[in-house]
Design a binder for these strands. Structure first.
Lengths: 229, 229
DNA sequence: GACTGCCTTAATTATATCATAACGATATTA
DNA sequence: TAATATCGTTATGATATAATTAAGGCAGTC
């Protein structure tokens, strides 16, 4: 689960935040001092930081700036006064969100979750890694090598599956038949690239409503094919 | 510069938003209807979306969800009631931020900038990676060989695309028809120079508002063509 | 060893795109 | 303003490319 560092000098608030976050299965550390907080922030690898603005030692402004110089993960600033939010924003310190005291713990948790979810969404390379591809009614499960169209399973042969999956994992990128043949059949294999055409045709019969108006694998005349998203 | 799509049925608000965003050099399109908005959102490639919650056609909830299924870029929700924010958050639609009406335009701009900056920080400069050319509402994606004019996609044939891209990649340089024919059709190919004219004509039909007053591909009489920037 | 299913190849049909030519429009020059 | 050169526009047939279908061969399975 994700790890969060809270830098906050009011112990009661810090503990409250920690309790609620731990209820949502986050691992939480607390640091009360700005200088030590920075050290800990840079040394440990946390998935998110929650910084109070007023702190002994380095204040929240400086802290945010220094952390951002090194880390990319979300930073949430906690302020006592609403007006300070504009100030922080204006300084362009790179904070991701702002919350004013007093706040409801559930709102804090909601925001933390949202930021972590977004971070994951943006950072993990979208194409690879995923074992399942799902787009407009087409679902591909790479692990079991099965394909569904609008909930209905279609039986795919090995080559058909590989071809469809390769295209779907690189959406909107156009590949020539030569490229497709090389990547899927192997560099050395000599053969007719019309094989690719035939397989595309077979795939379309299975996933397209109307094969002459393909919704998924589009023909780019004179260039190649692409998986449309 | 970044391109933003506003989906908002109250024209006065949409225009206000647009004006302020344009002052900060964003390119902005507006759509008033939920259904059309979704189409435009998915077809055009925008860097950010601003969605009103209450809309004719698809509402903001559904819209956000559907866009998020396909797009990774920031989504900002505009609501009339503060309470709705919790609702949206609870639904986990994948919105990045929320702002309640009435809001100050400068706050909107500040938030938009912050989100785009973060997005860039996390998925470093997508424009360069994606091989894109973007100039005055004309956007060319070389990887997927697609072209948009003011957010609307236009279908280009291979030769049309190659010709436009070549000119756009060498802005302000004048090429004679002979030069264009040689570079795009190949040195050896013998053929009529008027082929170039016809293709320029076809391209203009697709990207120019008024083909007799071209904004992009300019005719230099007796010399050739150039892509104006 | 026969059967089965998949892949490949090849041949045929369909289609998109392109090049050409003819004509009309517009800019340049005298 | 008239003449001329250049460009814009349109339609059409030719060509290149893709879709479709069928058949042969190969590999794996029983």
């Amino acid at each position: 689960m994700s790890r969060i560092l809270i830098i906050e000098d009011e112990e009661s608030i810090a503990e409250l935040e920690k309790d609620y976050l731990e209820l949502s299965n986050f691992e939480v550390d607390i640091e009360a001092d700005g200088d030590k907080g920075l050290q800990k922030a840079l040394a440990g690898n946390y998935d998110m930081y929650i910084l109070d603005l007023m702190l002994p030692g380095l204040d929240g402004f400086e802290l945010c700036k220094r952390i951002r110089e090194v880390k990319n993960v979300p930073i949430l600033m906690v302020t006592a006064k609403k007006e300070e939010i504009d100030k922080i924003r204006g300084l362009g310190l790179g904070a991701d969100d702002y919350i004013t005291k007093p706040f409801s713990p559930s709102e804090l948790v909601a925001r933390v979750k949202a930021h972590l979810a977004r971070y994951d969404r943006l950072v993990q390379s979208p194409a690879i890694q995923k074992n399942e591809i799902s787009i407009r009614g087409l679902r591909i499960d790479k692990a079991s090598r099965r394909v569904w169209i609008n909930g209905e399973e279609k039986v795919f042969t090995a080559k058909e599956f590989d071809l469809l999956t390769f295209l779907a994992e690189n959406p909107n990128v156009i590949f020539s038949k030569e490229q497709l043949f090389e990547t899927l059949w192997g560099e050395e294999s000599i053969g007719d690239i019309s094989t690719v055409t035939v397989h595309v045709n077979k795939i379309r019969e299975k996933i397209e409503l109307n094969t002459s108006k393909p919704q998924y694998i589009e023909t780019i005349w004179g260039v190649g094919y692409r998986f449309k998203v």
